[in-house]
Simulated scan of single mutants.
Amino acid sequence: MSLKIILTGLIILFSIKAYSSERKIKFSFNDKEIIVALEDNRAAESLLKQLPLTLRFEDYSNTEKISYLPEKLDVSQAPDSCTPHTGDLTYYSPWGNLAFFYKDFGYSKGLILLGKIESGMEELKELDKALSVKIERMNK
């Protein structure tokens, strides 16, 4: 193998790692953390631009934990619906709220997938008990 091929491979590998760390956010509360890997869509980018944020979550319909953002997300060019699964972070565009699903749910118009929980799934059940949840971009 030539040195050029090896170096090119390493550059690609490090680029992927750098990109993936930029696309993760952390929800911190009560000495707990939930790490979310974000999707590659305009709504997720729009969320990143609002960070850091401090929000309060509430339980909704025994299926999801929700919180309202200070500003609506840019949903242009994002899929306008999804079928959420346990661990999905979504945005419900008609109401302007984030929603973490802790149970699978049916196809929903207006629901945009923002990301998936990468670690801290077990902490999700406590999210609505926190007085405040800090949301920030992971270190690059």
Score class of each variant (00 low, 15 high):
40 D>R: 15
51 L>E: 11
111 L>K: 13
6 I>R: 13
25 I>H: 08
16 I>D: 10
60 Y>P: 03
103 K>M: 12
140 K>H: 14
42 R>H: 13
69 L>K: 10
121 M>S: 10
122 E>K: 09
60 Y>Q: 06
99 A>L: 05
138 M>L: 14
12 I>K: 09
49 K>V: 07
138 M>E: 10
96 G>T: 08
48 L>E: 14
87 G>S: 09
74 D>M: 06
122 E>Y: 06
76 S>D: 11
93 S>Y: 14
124 L>E: 02
107 Y>W: 10
68 Y>G: 01
80 D>W: 00
35 I>F: 09
23 R>K: 15
140 K>G: 14
79 P>A: 13
97 N>C: 06
39 E>S: 14
62 N>I: 07
136 E>V: 03
10 L>Y: 09
46 S>Y: 11
114 L>A: 05
2 S>P: 08
77 Q>T: 03
51 L>Q: 11
112 I>Q: 09
130 A>W: 00
102 Y>H: 11
66 I>Q: 01
18 A>D: 02
92 Y>G: 02
92 Y>F: 15
47 L>P: 00
92 Y>R: 04
36 V>T: 09
65 K>P: 00
111 L>V: 08
126 E>D: 14
47 L>G: 09
27 F>C: 00
117 I>H: 06
72 K>G: 01
51 L>S: 10
9 G>K: 07
107 Y>N: 06
30 N>C: 02
114 L>P: 00
84 P>W: 05
52 P>H: 05
71 E>L: 11
71 E>T: 11
117 I>R: 03
80 D>R: 08
11 I>T: 12
29 F>C: 01
39 E>N: 13
58 E>Y: 03
126 E>V: 03
63 T>R: 05
108 S>A: 10
121 M>L: 14
24 K>E: 15
131 L>P: 02
88 D>I: 00
129 K>C: 01
72 K>N: 13
123 E>I: 01
45 E>S: 15
27 F>A: 02
75 V>I: 15
78 A>F: 02
91 Y>F: 14
40 D>E: 15
36 V>Q: 12
120 G>N: 06
110 G>Y: 09
17 K>A: 15
87 G>V: 07
41 N>M: 12
130 A>C: 03
29 F>S: 01
131 L>F: 01
99 A>K: 00
39 E>T: 05
128 D>I: 06
